[in-house]
């Protein structure tokens, strides 16, 4: 579909992105996220820009205020004259394939700011709170030439779907994970669970204008203290009470995000994380290609063999996978 978008050649698209053309950024994002004809050449051309921008992921349950927090963070970063790109992911319906991408409503005050680029993405079937093509999308943003003639936005923020307890993929995608929570979302036992709680580099307890915010902060701190490292050099995870509504604590939150970025550089941990990102990018692509290839091999003959009990799913799946190229 969308043949009109295929009109620009890959080469021209890349060069226009590298010259700071936001229309080209937008088209490039469509090509790599749609995986429409010729997208591979585009994705390949943008890959070398990996690592140009610090990437910050925001995860947390639906309604915890991720988009509103993005909005206030963007305001603060723009006051300092730094450019920001945001990729915000919302769920695709498993029933209709449609989606309502609603994160944008919270940041629309920045719609006319040339230093802000916001793109909504649908999960299109991927679990884990992200879209499968997120890596290619990030590389496009890392190639964009900003007003300061620098390659890559000063900041790239990724907002996950907000599926709740299990959206940990973001930790293999970005440099710094901010976990957003809010009062009344559970006690210290909730905070002790595996899942999103264990991938946070920084905690933001949003809605600090509500009562019980202190209790929420204390619960998380309690849970974190159970796993304190003896290594004094290790990153100690900060927990901040913030309010996207009033702006309270946002400056401190940003300071922590920046401190984490500095920690990654000083400790050498950044190299570890970037490697992890590349591994994830490669493995997710491999698994998608295998899956597509293998599923194309499933035929009615196989189903017939199952109906007639002439074979079983395990034997057949092994057989199908053997032929995968």
């Amino acid at each position: 579909m969308a043949g009109r978008r295929s009109l620009i050649s890959a080469e021209e698209l890349v060069s226009r992105v590298c010259q700071g053309d936001q229309g080209a950024v937008s088209r490039a994002l469509t090509r790599v996220t749609d995986e429409s004809d010729g997208y591979e050449e585009i994705a390949r051309s943008f890959f070398p820009f990996h690592g140009n921008s610090p990437t910050i992921g925001l995860c947390g349950s639906p309604g915890s205020g991720k988009s509103s927090l993005v909005n206030t963070l963007v305001s603060l970063l723009r006051k300092r004259g730094e450019s920001v790109a945001i990729l915000a992911v919302d769920p695709t319906s498993a029933y209709t394939g449609g989606a309502f991408l609603g994160d944008r409503i919270r940041v629309q005050q920045h719609a006319l700011d040339e230093g802000v680029f916001f793109r909504s993405l649908a999960t299109r079937g991927m679990v884990g709170g992200l879209n499968e093509t997120i890596f290619s999308a990030i590389h496009v943003l890392e190639a964009y030439e900003t007003e300061k003639k620098k390659k890559g936005f000063d900041w790239i923020l990724i907002e996950t779907v907000g599926t709740g307890q299990d959206e940990v993929d973001i930790a293999d995608v970005v440099d710094t994970v901010v976990c957003v929570t809010a009062p009344y979302q559970g006690d210290e036992f909730q905070a002790m669970k595996a899942g999103t709680m264990e991938i946070a580099d920084v905690f933001a307890v949003n809605k600090a204008d509500l009562e019980e915010v202190d209790k929420a902060v204390a619960s998380i701190k309690d849970a974190l203290s159970l796993g304190l490292s003896h290594d004094e050099e290790a990153w100690s995870i900060p927990v901040h009470a913030v309010s996207a509504r009033t702006g309270q604590g946002i400056d401190v939150l940003l300071e922590s995000i920046e401190a984490h970025g500095k920690y990654l550089l000083d400790s050498g941990e950044i190299a570890v994380r970037r490697k992890r990102q590349l591994r994830k990018e490669l493995s997710s692509l491999v698994s998608r290609l295998i899956r597509r290839n293998a599923l194309e091999r499933v035929t009615d003959c196989h189903i017939k063999a199952l109906v007639e009990k002439k074979s079983d799913p395990l034997t057949l799946s092994r057989k199908i996978l053997k032929g995968v190229s």
Partner: peptide
């Protein structure tokens, strides 16, 4: 809502937008 249910990806701006926005 209707377009979402019909299989479109729908983005909504919210109210009070200028033509430029």
């Amino acid at each position: 809502r209707a377009l979402r249910d019909a299989g479109f990806e729908v983005i909504y701006t919210g109210i009070r937008q200028t033509a430029e926005m």
